[in-house]
Write a protein that binds this DNA or RNA. Structure first.
Lengths: 125, 125, 125, 125
DNA sequence: GTGGTCTAGACCACA
DNA sequence: GTGGTCTAGACCACC
């Protein structure tokens, strides 16, 4: 399904959160689709189930998935209206990153072409 | 000078690194300008000097400042050519953030206007 | 495992970095092999754990090892392509040393035979 | 005469020692030639005279120069026989550097061509 | 148990 | 006075 970098400084559960977010964002995992069960994924990735659970809990609290007892975890349909808080975080992060990119010498043209690139990749939703 | 959240999950020294980076990137701290001394800043923020030093050391190894033993720490002049590695990290982070922003409902117009805003703020170099 | 000179002008953690680098370079410590834990080594060498950690952190940022929070520190597999910067440092140091060696009376024959010697010792990978 | 990097982590007096060694090794400063006086050099480099003195003391103890009270400091003629101690240091450093260079992917061919290059540069003694 | 962070406090090297 | 090193000892996050 995807790869984790055990050598990274980033904790495994955080990597998991990010990867799963990516899959949801890029619509590989569709709305209300079931995620693999904790045990299943743990076995696949040869990782401690506790670590998987921690990732799922994090995703749930960030509003990306929802869990039904005894049934599993599912992709949360997007409700743009509810995500104002998340959006503000993203906006703030964008500001920081833009400043850094410019400082390191990137032009706004380059940044915008990167944006287009991502946009195109995301169209197949 | 700025605020730190001692309760945050993010280590204090990392918060410091980020804040100081911001000040350098936004040209509040100019090239070769002296940063506050380790002890001075420690006292100001009521934080242990070792913690400050850890932050300064990190900034040094990332190429943002340089430290001289009997003299102090100073802002390192930018050498855009040398930062290809850093740039790749930034590009990767931009990709992720763009995807997330779009997923949360931001339009490319909004993102671009945010970019312009940052750009204008950075002009006073 | 090895000896440190606590009286030396060279900081203990730098001595540690050098010694461990040697062990990695000469393949005594193989790829992905676990290094002794911070506490363990600290006890063995009767040195403060913080000092060991400082050394490990330095090795990590130089790309020689990687550390996993609940697991330990491990030898980083070599990626020759990524170390161009390190290589340039080594080349510069070689130039200086060659000049000094010749000045002190060594012939290029002697130097080359030293090189062969090291080469042979490194073959047992 | 030469440049010092005030931004370097290396103490200024050590940089001075190295640079002066280079000048002696490459025969730019000939045997028994007078070095610039402490004051003179201090003024030229806009550096504290104490720092210069420390460098000169270091060079003297390493056998590269000798000082005559009231007259100044002079380049020490080479006596290969006396430098066995220095030579052993150099040999040891060469071993380490060779190992590192090979580890980072340099071939013995490259190393040898570097040696030739230095050799040629040193011929004009 | 492992690495990582932080504090308090001491001492050294450099300029 | 400045950065740099080191210790002793505490507590946290991760697995």
């Amino acid at each position: 399904m995807f790869e984790l970098d055990v050598r990274s400084r980033k904790p495994i559960y955080e990597q998991l959160v990010e990867k799963l977010k990516q899959l949801i964002i890029t619509n590989v995992l569709k709305e209300d689709e079931k995620l693999p069960s904790v045990r299943e994924l743990a076995q696949q990735l040869t990782i401690n189930p506790n670590t998987i659970q921690k990732a799922y809990r994090e995703l749930e609290s960030q509003g990306y998935i929802y869990s039904l007892k005894g049934k599993g975890s599912f992709v949360h349909p997007v409700k743009p209206s509810e995500n104002e808080e998340e959006l503000n975080k993203v906006r703030e992060e964008l500001r920081k990153l833009f400043a850094e990119a410019i400082y390191l010498g990137m032009t706004s043209k380059e940044i915008e072409s990167l944006l287009r690139e991502v946009e195109r990749g995301q169209e197949n939703d």
